[in-house]
């Protein structure tokens, strides 16, 4: 895992060097070319003096499903607005799909689908007419294929049947799906989804997750912001964590997990003996509890531990390998918890 340095001195080595995405082995001459999103020192200070985003150095590898995690109000949406050129940063630079922004907004955003801060549509238009409206706004969208593309997008989010219904009559979940459909109107290289499962029931949430995985499998980079740890854990290959406007960690989820060791926990009345056996196996970080003992498993095999305990005459009531959850990692990183449930 890589903890992102927040001081400017180390910011320069973030892109490319520490983050390797799928197929990220080949380093290119153009900096940031294999990164769909790169920001350096991106900062937004609002008129009131409040710093919403503070010197953000993001590196989103192409092809990844990138979770952008943080509690509500940690600056996720402001970051996304800056990425899309809706809000001008106070300082810092960023590139989307290798193009420096905000100069390249016109050319790049056609290849980026975005869902920002919930759905927004014209209530007196049908779902289909709403999509047509957004498609018309994209100067590179081909008017000849618009019906086909809208049909496909609606089908993908399961709204084909409600295409002709006025948006006013849509339920919260349908509105969210329509917003996702709007991001799928054209061939996209990058999707930016801000809290895509907001307002969806558990079934809808599962469907969105499936859809994100499917889109990612087609090669599109997906950048998902969420305040739900579980959601990010289930969908994403990479993650970045925001806390009060600052980036506290980013990297592949596997790397983050690996930073926290796997532990083995033995439930037993013979606490002392069990601890002795574990020590005898050379396992470090032995902790004694009330009726249980745990130790870092490291590369050790649980079946050998089990055998050793039995051989040592320890009464084993239960044996468990504890792999760290992201929550453990983040609690360790940020010192605070996230909403685990939704």
């Amino acid at each position: 895992m890589s903890r992102t340095p927040t001081d400017a001195g180390l910011a320069a080595d973030v892109p490319g060097s520490r983050v390797g995405g799928p197929g990220g082995g080949s380093r290119r001459e153009v900096p940031g070319a294999e990164l769909s999103i790169v920001t350096s020192g991106l900062t937004k200070r609002f008129g009131s003096g409040q710093v919403a985003v503070d010197a953000l150095d993001l590196a989103v590898p192409s092809g990844s499903v990138f979770g952008f995690l943080g509690p509500n109000g940690s600056g996720k949406t402001t970051t996304i607005r800056m990425l899309l050129g809706l809000v001008a940063p106070t300082a810092g630079e960023w590139r989307l799909l290798g193009t420096p922004m905000p100069g390249g907004v016109g050319g790049v955003l056609s290849r980026v689908g975005a869902l920002v801060e919930g759905p927004a549509f014209y209530p007196y238009l049908s779902g289909e007419a709403n999509l047509r409206r957004y498609d018309a706004a994209d100067p590179s969208a081909d008017p000849r294929t618009v019906s086909t593309r809208i049909g496909l997008a609606l089908e993908r989010v399961g709204l084909a049947a409600a295409a002709g219904k006025r948006y006013r009559a849509y339920s919260l979940g349908m509105r969210q799906r329509l917003a996702i459909a709007a991001t799928l109107l054209g061939p996209r290289e990058l999707l930016i989804l801000d809290e895509p499962t907001n307002g969806l029931d558990p079934q809808g949430t599962r469907e969105v997750r499936g859809l994100v995985k499917e889109i990612a499998a087609e090669g599109t980079t997906v950048f998902v912001s969420s305040h739900l740890l579980a959601e990010v854990e289930q969908m994403c290959s990479h993650v970045a964590v925001m806390r009060t406007g600052r980036l506290v960690a980013q990297g592949p989820i596997a790397d983050l997990r690996a930073s926290e060791t796997v532990r083995i926990r033995v439930e037993t009345p013979d606490v002392e003996e069990a601890a002795a056996v574990l020590a005898g196996l050379g396992l470090p970080e032995i902790r004694l509890g009330d009726g249980d003992v745990s130790a870092a498993l490291g590369a050790g095999l649980p079946e050998r531990v089990c055998a050793a305990l039995v051989t040592g005459g320890v009464a084993v009531r239960g044996l468990a390998v504890q792999r760290p959850t992201l929550e453990d990692v983040f609690v360790g990183l940020t010192g605070e918890g996230f909403d685990v449930d939704g």
Partner: peptide, 25 residues
């Protein structure tokens, strides 16, 4: 509908696009 769904190709296009004519795709 998405001919360049291969990420590598997509990137290549993005890159050449970025190089051509000062960032205009």
């Amino acid at each position: 509908a998405v001919p360049d769904h291969d990420p590598a190709r997509g990137r290549d296009q993005a890159m050449t696009a970025g190089q051509a004519a000062g960032g205009r795709p």
